[in-house]
């Protein structure tokens, strides 16, 4: 899978052919999201996720956008007592916006981050203790639609393929809906980002 991801990453960058210089870091976009895990691999046989919440920050770069964000979901146990966990995904990434009209943009991007899983309890095997805190590298490919409702507010609808590279990898598709609030960036923000 990693090889496909790697290929997609390069193709994503290369396909962005109609590049143009834009006013980097000119605005800050804050998106509040609701997230739903739609489907995933074997992990979902033993854990059942609730809907989750997230927050994303985005700002225009010279090409595309730079992003960072956080997503929270609760996974309830089905099989193993005490194994329910809170999932915290912290990420940064890059996306490219294809503007279909003045109001609608199609955005696709890639994210890298870390998935933190905080279980309700430690797990013991005889004398050996596995800490309740587990974390692993996680990457995500995302595509979303942005619809401008007003000058400062957009509707955000997206789907993402996320893969966390555990020994038995956890792959899942998420659906995301949210509202984006746009603000002109301050001088200090541009100074820090440049």
């Amino acid at each position: 899978m990693i090889r496909h991801f790697f290929l997609i990453l390069i193709i994503s960058a290369a396909v962005a052919q109609d590049l143009y210089s834009q006013d980097a870091f000119s605005e800050v976009r804050v998106t509040l999201t609701g997230n739903k895990l739609m489907t995933g691999n074997t992990l979902l046989r033993s854990w059942d996720p609730n809907a989750g919440l997230g927050v994303e920050l985005s700002t225009p770069y010279y090409v595309g956008n730079l992003e960072a964000g956080y997503r929270y979901l609760r996974f309830n146990e089905i099989d193993f007592e005490g194994s329910a966990f809170d999932s915290h995904y912290l990420f940064f990434g890059w996306s490219y916006s294809y503007r279909a009209s003045d109001e609608v943009a199609l955005v696709y991007g890639v994210r890298f981050g870390k998935q933190f899983m905080l279980h309700d309890e430690d797990m013991f095997y005889d004398d050996y203790r596995f800490s309740r805190e587990e974390s692993e590298f996680s990457y995500e490919l995302q595509i979303r639609l942005e619809y401008e409702i007003s000058r400062n507010v957009e509707l955000y609808l997206g789907t993402a393929y996320n893969r966390t590279i555990f020994n038995i990898p956890f792959a899942a598709f998420y659906g995301t809906a949210g509202l984006t609030f746009k603000f002109p960036s301050s001088r200090w923000f541009r100074t820090v980002m440049k």
């Binding site: 033993s46 005490g82 587990e134 974390s135 590279i165 555990f166 038995i168």
Partner: peptide
Amino acid sequence: NSGEPGPWVFDPERVSPNV
């Protein structure tokens, strides 16, 4: 390195060591 056991630490059939 990648390959942490993740939630599978709770599954005696699938548990793997920390990395």
